[in-house]
């Protein structure tokens, strides 16, 4: 167990180690910890607009995507968990196939579709593209949580004279708050880690940090310190999110609805 944790942490430690070194030290000597501690790499990223805009762009489309995904997934998940309707099973399966669809298949058509409607290189394009796999995922997770809420609650609310939207927002949503949290976590995660689509769909204005990093690798290929620092900074939001949902992670995974 401890060995495995060590195996998990070592590469991350190495990245941290490198991000705190100067380039001369990285290339010149080999050391297990930085002898010449420097924050220059981080400062460079946080002061250079082409770097920090990458983070802002990424965050913008991730947030847009999470909001859209949850907004459309909530009612749909409710319908799937409560009612039988024509073609419900086929529809559910079809949604699932989209979660399974390889992004590589969709990269080219997305590129053309968004170019033709003038959305290319905008945050909304990436957000919509990521909906392809996040919406089915959100529906799937939420459906699992909603099934756990007894139907009697719905019925009692109607008898008490709540209208449907009122009931949904005031009573039902708080009941599945943890489910919404888990769904948001996974939407955030998958949108944050995805590179292929976000790189294909952006050029300048909405360029995500991931694409900025790959560009650095191919263009200069030498500025290892800054690259490592950028990598460390991309881990930060993930680590923060994990910290907040740490008690729900196991439950979310337990549903197998990843």
């Amino acid at each position: 167990m401890a060995l495995y944790l060590l195996f998990l942490m070592l590469p991350i430690y190495w990245l941290l180690n490198m991000s705190l070194k100067t380039n001369a030290e990285i290339l010149g000597s080999f050391s297990l910890w930085p002898r010449d501690l420097t924050l220059a790499n981080y400062i460079k990223i946080l002061t250079d607009p082409s770097w920090y805009w990458g983070y802002i762009n990424s965050l913008i489309y991730v947030v847009i995507n999470t909001v859209i995904s949850l907004a459309v997934a909530l009612p749909a998940a409710y319908a799937f968990s409560r009612y039988n309707f024509m073609g419900d099973k086929h529809l559910f399966f079809w949604l699932l196939t989209n979660r399974m669809a390889p992004p590589a298949v969709f990269a080219l058509p997305f590129f053309q579709l968004y170019s033709s409607v003038g959305l290319f290189d905008t945050h909304i394009a990436v957000a919509l593209a990521h909906c392809l796999f996040n919406v089915p995922l959100a529906v799937w997770i939420l459906e699992g949580f909603m099934r756990g809420v007894p139907k009697e609650i719905d019925e009692t609310a109607y008898i008490d004279g709540y209208s449907f939207p009122h009931f949904f927002i005031r009573i039902f949503t708080p009941l599945i708050a943890s489910g919404i949290g888990v769904a948001a976590f996974f939407c955030f995660m998958f949108s944050w880690v995805e590179l292929l689509l976000s790189r294909t769909l952006t050029s300048v204005d909405a360029k995500p940090i991931a694409a900025t990093m790959t560009r650095t690798v191919s263009a200069s290929g030498l500025d290892w310190g800054v690259l490592a620092a950028a990598g460390m900074l991309t881990i930060v939001p993930g680590a923060l999110v994990i910290y907040f949902v740490r008690n729900y992670i196991a439950k979310g995974f337990a549903l197998g609805r990843v």
Partner: peptide
């Protein structure tokens, strides 16, 4: 749990970069 979930939340290209450097 937190340490184990950490690799899952690292952007995939950063995973690549980490191992490229490593």
């Amino acid at each position: 749990l937190v340490v184990m979930s950490l690799p899952l939340l690292i952007p995939w290209n950063v995973v690549g970069t980490i191992w490229q450097i490593f």
